[in-house]
Design a protein around this nucleic acid. Structure first.
Lengths: 195, 195
DNA sequence: CTTTACAGTTAGCATTTATTAACTTAAAAT
DNA sequence: ATTTTAAGTTAATAAATGCTAACTGTAAAG
């Protein structure tokens, strides 16, 4: 294929792949190095520490997610369509990253590592805020129920998508994580009960 | 408090607490032992390996979840109330296990560890089957929308709960994971959109 | 040409980890 | 009263891990 990738880039990709397919316990310098045909020590020519690789992986995911929300908002759609578009964009990013970052969130939000926590926390807060605004607008327009908490629901959005990754993995499926994004969105929007 | 707990029991509780509050990387014999005032070697008087502790934590959660579905079904409630009761029971188990199992699911579903994966897989399939039956009954009775897939929706149940654990962890909250279970159930049932 | 910088190597160090072995002690069983 | 067992200890081992240091080759810059 296109072997034009720099070693730095290969490290990031191999690292993400390990997290996705083998779990955090296998995210070690040796495993990453093996995967791309160098030695573990060579990793440190490109990154000061393994933590730095994780930071890079997270930051890339975060910026893509944030951008995708902004992109959806800029389309000038109705509130309902904006919300749906945001979800669709999020699902797209998730598919491409196979849900690696949720795993990282789970682990590093609790690892006592302030650096990670601050990055992840800031991201989640930012994302929640952006989404909350759309939901709040929906409430003002009489579209969304008044008794729901916008920021709670925003987190539900994010979490729900991540849970789909779990189902995907547990059912040993191949192909897309979310078969029918619009069905999922519709269930969240209109519930599962008739009328 | 009630110091009547056996060491074995303390190990399981301390282990779960470490997983939820400090992450999997800190799930080590030494950390568990420190938490309950014994040495790491003493752990092995009660469990053959650390993996065995994880298996025990997962199995307990699983059997309680399964039981709670059966219990809810036996109450002879309406389909709608049965579904709600199942969710309430599941949330109760989740709270009592402090959300450790969803975290483990995320990690071990991709760790390549066949032992863990098989346990989780069996659980998910079983749980999905039981719940699907209730949902299907709901569809036959005209309660639940026809265009939803029962087993997909069963997984949605599980996923919703995972989403809540994610939010709980990311927001560094204390206390209950799900503040208002009935609100959550209602959102799933009736959606977030008005009418 | 020579120098310098880069990107890799091998070797090694300090630490951590899971686990085991050998020993102690106190309580329960005989 | 003696033996056995359970549950703890300390000490040790082997392997893995993160990371560093010293070295090597290559290729661009001067």
């Amino acid at each position: 294929m296109l072997e034009e990738l720099s070693t730095r880039e290969k490290i990031i990709l191999a690292g993400a792949e390990i997290i996705i397919h083998e779990g955090l316990k296998r995210f070690t310098a040796k495993n990453i190095a093996n995967k791309i045909g160098i030695t573990d020590a060579a990793i440190y020519k490109h990154f000061p520490s393994l933590d730095a690789i994780v930071v890079e992986i997270i930051n890339r995911y975060i910026s893509r997610c944030s951008q995708s929300v902004d992109r959806a908002k800029e389309l000038g759609l109705s509130t309902e369509e904006t919300l749906k578009q945001v979800m669709r964009e999020h699902i797209k990013v998730l598919e491409e990253t196979k849900g690696a970052v949720p795993v990282l969130c789970f682990e590093f939000s609790r690892s006592g590592n302030k650096k990670f926590f601050d990055i992840l926390h800031k991201f989640v807060e930012d994302y929640k805020k952006k989404l909350s605004e759309v939901i709040k607008k929906g409430q003002e327009e009489g579209l969304v129920k008044e008794d729901i908490d916008p920021s709670e629901t925003a987190m539900l959005f994010v979490g729900l998508i991540q849970a789909k990754v779990f189902a995907y993995v547990m059912e040993r499926r191949e192909g897309p994580i979310i078969k029918d994004p619009d069905q999922l969105i519709s269930e969240l929007f209109y519930g599962i009960i008739k009328k």
